[in-house]
Simulated scan of single mutants.
Amino acid sequence: MSSTSAAGLPAVLVRRQTLSGRLALAVFVFAVIGLVLMPWWAKPGTIRMIVELCCYIAVAQMWNMMAGYAGLVSVGQQAFVGTAGYALFVLAQTFGVNPFVAIFLSLLVPAVLAVPCYLLLHRLDGPYFAIGTWVVAEVFRLAASNLTFVNAGSGMSLGVMREYSAFERNVAMSLLCALMILVTIGGSYWFLRSRFGLALIAMRDNPVAAASQGVDVRRLRFMIYVASAIGCGLAGAVYFMAQLRINPPSAFDPMWSNIAIFIVMVGGIASIEGVLIGALIYFVAERWFGAYGASYFVVLGVMTVLVALYARGGIWGMISKRWDAPWFPIRRHLVQVTEAKP
Rank of each mutant, 00 (worst) to 15 (best):
A67K: 01
S295Q: 15
D253S: 11
G153Y: 07
G278Y: 09
I181L: 09
M65H: 06
L119C: 09
A7I: 09
E339T: 14
V73R: 06
F240Q: 03
R193K: 12
D324I: 13
A87T: 12
S74N: 07
W41A: 15
I131W: 00
M241S: 14
G8R: 10
V27I: 11
A251C: 08
A11P: 00
L25T: 14
A67W: 04
G313C: 10
Y86P: 00
A143D: 08
L234I: 12
A211R: 01
M303W: 02
S157K: 11
V115Q: 02
R218E: 06
V160T: 14
Y239G: 04
E286T: 14
S320F: 07
A130C: 01
Y292G: 04
A102K: 13
V226K: 03
S165H: 05
Q336L: 14
G8V: 10
P99C: 07
N206W: 03
G186V: 07
A79W: 05
T184I: 11
V81Q: 06
W190I: 03
R322S: 11
R332D: 09
C232T: 12
F297K: 15
R221T: 10
V136K: 03
V75Q: 05
L9K: 06
W316I: 01
L120Q: 08
I47T: 15
V208N: 03
L280F: 15
R204Q: 02
A111E: 03
G274K: 15
S5V: 14
E52M: 13
T184M: 00
V90L: 13
L113Q: 04
V112P: 05
S212E: 01
L91I: 07
L234C: 04
L113G: 05
R15N: 02
F28G: 07
L113N: 05
W323G: 04
A130M: 04
F89L: 06
A58N: 07
L220P: 04
A291W: 15
F191Q: 01
R331D: 13
M156W: 06
F30G: 10
N64H: 09
C177Q: 05
L107T: 13
A202F: 01
A143L: 13
I47Q: 12
F149I: 10
S20H: 09
M223V: 14
F140R: 00
L198K: 01
A340N: 11
V284H: 07
P44I: 03
A26N: 07
G82N: 03
A311K: 13
V59A: 08
I319R: 12
L91K: 08
G301H: 12
